[in-house]
Simulated assay, not measured.
Amino acid sequence: MPNIKIDDVNMYYEVHGEGEPLVLITGLSSDHKTWLPFLPAFTNNYRVLIMDNRGIGQTEYPDTQFSVDDMADDTAGLMNKLGIEKAHVIGHSLGGRIAQKLVLKYPEKVKSLILCATSASQPKRSKLMLNTLANEVNNGMSIGALLKIMMAISFTENSFQNVDIINERIDSRAEGLSRDYAKNFARQVQASADYNTVDELNQIKVPTLVLAAEYDFIFPLEFVKELAEGISGSKLIVIEGTGHSLLLEEPKEFIKLTLGFLSKINK
């Protein structure tokens, strides 16, 4: 798929499948490849849009700081360019925050929301941790070290049965990433640092499913509950035994819950 120019951003995107539009928005420092394992489950019934957010992957943008609002504008602009008037939207982590801003700024473009392992306000512990990581990255921390720390705080103990293999895979991935990856990780952290939609959640009127991870270190359960309680009529489901990367630790459960929710939305 080509890139499309959206204002000051040249966005990389892919469209797969046929049916109602479904937009998938990735989390912090993740690109469109996050969603590739899930496409077979979605593309039978949905026209699926995946993309690289501003600051990651093959999306090009000015060498400046940006905000979550900017990323929501990017998503809306991409939808417009592709002729997508309205879509179901799934967002994980930072992607869930982008999805919140998308529906708040462009309510006419969102048919339903699935918000995964995300929040409406910023946990102080997570802010300290991520800001410290961003500062260390800017001061020269290796990309391999960054990836290993992010994995350690995003997955549960069960995902670390063979640490040697994990280290090899992360080191191999880090070799293919430039310092731009690290710089833009820091920018995405900064974009989300003071995020707060608590007082706006009552404006969200679309059917909403909130998925929480039982052992989420980045967005603890109390913060995900705050999000769900702020959206009238939303449904909260806690996926037991998972960490922040719940969709990767329990992909079958993630697919079952999302498809079940989407199937009940009026066509």
Rank of each mutant, 00 (worst) to 15 (best):
L236S: 07
V89N: 03
V48Q: 04
Y12P: 01
V103R: 09
L236Y: 09
L257Q: 15
F219A: 12
D180F: 11
D7N: 15
A99W: 07
A174H: 01
G91T: 08
I255G: 01
P251K: 10
Y181P: 03
L201I: 11
Q161N: 11
M71R: 08
V210R: 00
E14M: 10
D69K: 14
Y106K: 04
E250V: 10
E250N: 15
I170P: 00
Y181S: 09
L113N: 03
I50D: 04
L248M: 12
F66E: 00
M151S: 08
V9W: 06
A87G: 03
S172M: 13
K148S: 10
K225R: 15
H92W: 12
K81Q: 15
S154L: 02
E249V: 08
S112R: 03
A191M: 10
K148F: 08
I50P: 01
Q122I: 04
W35V: 07
N131A: 03
L209D: 05
R173D: 02
D164A: 15
P37R: 13
S154R: 05
F160V: 15
I237N: 02
K267I: 12
H88C: 02
Y106C: 10
L177A: 06
M150N: 12
G55Q: 05
S172R: 15
M129L: 15
K124Y: 09
Q100H: 05
A212R: 07
D7S: 14
F219G: 11
S159G: 00
S232R: 10
E229L: 11
P107H: 15
N139F: 01
L246G: 08
P123I: 14
A191G: 10
K33F: 06
G55Y: 03
L39D: 04
K252F: 02
I237D: 02
E18F: 07
L115M: 07
D199S: 12
T59Y: 12
N196V: 04
H16A: 15
L248G: 00
T258W: 04
A145R: 14
M150T: 08
S192M: 13
S178W: 03
V68K: 01
I6W: 04
L94D: 06
Y46S: 09
L82K: 08
D194W: 03
Y215H: 15
D74P: 03
V15Y: 01
H92G: 08
E253W: 00
T208E: 00
F42I: 09
S172V: 04
L246R: 05
V23R: 08
L177M: 12
L201N: 11
A174N: 04
C116H: 00
G27D: 03
S245Y: 05
V198N: 13
F155Y: 14
M129T: 15
T258I: 06
I231A: 04
D63C: 05
Y181A: 07
T43R: 06
D199R: 09
S232D: 11
E214C: 12
A76R: 10
D199W: 01
D69T: 15
G243T: 06
M79Y: 07
I56S: 00
